[in-house]
C-alpha cells in the first residue's frame, strides 16, 4: 500500500542506518550538551565551592586565601569568640521559637481557613503577601513599627497604659523577639499555604467517618488529620529549618546585629569576617559550622524520607 506515487519516499529506512551499537559518549549527546550548565553548577559551584571553603577553613587565610595549614586553630578561635557564641545562642532561641510558632500558626490558620469560611481567597492573599517581600523590606518596616520613641510602644502608652514596655530595638534582652515577630510575619503564610494544600489533600470520607463515629472536630484534627499530614509537616520543618540557618538579610535590615552584638547571627559573623574583617579563615570556619548544622537537620530527614521509601 502506498499513499504516494513516488516510491522513493518510502522514506526513512536506510540513510546511514547504523548496524552497530553507537558509542556511549555520543548516545543522547544533545541532552548531555544541554545539561552542561547544570553539571557545571552542580560540580564546580556547589560541590567545588563547598569543598574549597571547607579545605581553606583549616588554613590561616586572612586578607587573601592561602594554603598555610593551621589545623583546627580557626575552629578553636571561633568557639572562643564571644560574638560567635552570642550568634549561636541567638540562632537557637530564634530557631526554636520560629519553628514551633510557624508550625502552630501555619497549621491553625490553615485549619481555620479550611472551615468553609467566607472570603477565604482574600484572607489567604493577606496572609501570604509578606512572603512576596524582601527580608530587607520586612526588616525595615518592623524596625519602624517597633521604634521605641515613635512606634508601637509610644502608641500604647499614649492610650493610657503608661508603664507599657516593648522595645526590642533598644533592649538587647528581647531583641531576638523583635526579629521573631518580623520573621513570623513574613514566613507563616507560606507554611499556611502548604498546610492548607495538605488539608485539602485529605480524603473527604475521613471527615465523614469521623462524624459518623462521633469524634469532635478538634479531636479529629489532633488524632486523625495531623498524623495523616506527616509528610507535609516534615516538608514544612525542612523549609523552616533551612530558612532559619540562612537568617541574615532580616537582621541586617532590622537591627544590624545590634544593639551592640546582641542580635548577631552566624551568617552575619561569616559575612563580617569574610568581607569586613579581612579574616577569611574565620569566615570559612563559621560557614563550615553552618553547613554542619544543616547536615544535622537534613540527614535525619533524608533517612526518614528516602530510607523509609525503600523499605515500603
Amino acid at each position: 500500500m502506498a499513499l504516494s506515487d513516488a516510491s522513493d519516499v518510502t522514506a526513512q529506512v536506510g540513510q546511514g542506518t547504523p548496524a552497530r551499537k553507537p558509542t556511549r559518549i555520543f548516545k543522547n549527546l544533545s541532552s548531555k550538551i544541554a545539561s552542561l550548565p547544570m553539571v557545571f553548577t552542580a560540580l564546580v559551584i556547589f560541590v567545588g565551592g563547598t569543598v574549597w571553603t571547607i579545605v581553606y577553613s583549616f588554613t590561616s587565610s586572612g586578607l587573601l586565601p592561602r594554603l598555610k595549614w593551621v589545623g583546627l586553630d580557626q575552629y578553636e578561635r571561633l568557639w572562643s569568640s564571644r560574638k560567635w557564641m552570642v550568634s549561636i545562642e541567638n540562632l537557637a532561641v530564634y530557631g526554636i521559637c520560629s519553628l514551633i510558632l510557624t508550625l502552630v500558626i501555619g497549621f491553625t490558620l490553615a485549619a481555620l481557613l479550611d472551615r468553609k469560611v467566607r472570603g477565604e481567597g482574600m484572607l489567604r492573599t493577606i496572609f501570604l503577601y509578606p512572603f512576596a517581600l524582601s527580608f530587607i523590606v520586612t526588616g525595615l518596616v518592623w524596625q519602624w513599627i517597633l521604634n521605641p520613641q515613635l512606634g508601637l510602644q509610644n502608641v500604647v502608652r499614649g492610650m493610657g497604659w503608661e508603664s507599657f514596655a516593648f522595645d526590642p530595638m533598644n533592649n538587647s534582652k528581647i531583641v531576638m523577639f523583635g526579629l521573631l515577630i518580623a520573621g513570623l510575619w513574613q514566613g507563616t503564610g507560606l507554611i499556611m499555604c502548604i498546610m492548607l494544600a495538605g488539608l485539602r489533600g485529605i480524603d473527604e470520607d475521613i471527615w465523614k467517618a469521623a462524624r459518623v463515629d462521633g469524634i469532635g472536630t478538634v479531636k479529629t484534627y489532633i488524632r486523625v488529620i495531623i498524623p495523616m499530614m506527616r509528610p507535609v509537616f516534615v516538608t514544612s520543618l525542612v523549609l523552616i529549618g533551612s530558612g532559619i540557618v540562612k537568617l541574615y538579610d532580616l537582621v541586617v535590615a532590622q537591627t544590624s546585629g545590634g544593639p551592640g552584638i546582641s542580635s548577631q547571627v552566624p551568617a552575619m559573623y561569616v559575612m563580617t569576617s569574610m568581607f569586613g574583617g579581612q579574616n577569611l579563615g574565620q569566615g570559612f570556619a563559621a560557614s563550615t559550622m553552618m553547613l554542619v548544622t544543616v547536615v544535622i537537620i537534613l540527614v535525619p530527614w533524608a533517612i526518614l524520607e528516602f530510607g523509609g521509601k525503600k523499605r515500603g
Partner: peptide
Amino acid sequence: VFFGILMIGAFIPYQIMLYPIVIL
C-alpha cells in the same frame, strides 16, 4: 546524580559558597 547534587545545593547555606564564587 547531578540533579541530586543540585537539589542538595539548594539547602546548603549560601555563605559556604560565597568566597569561591568571588574567586571564580
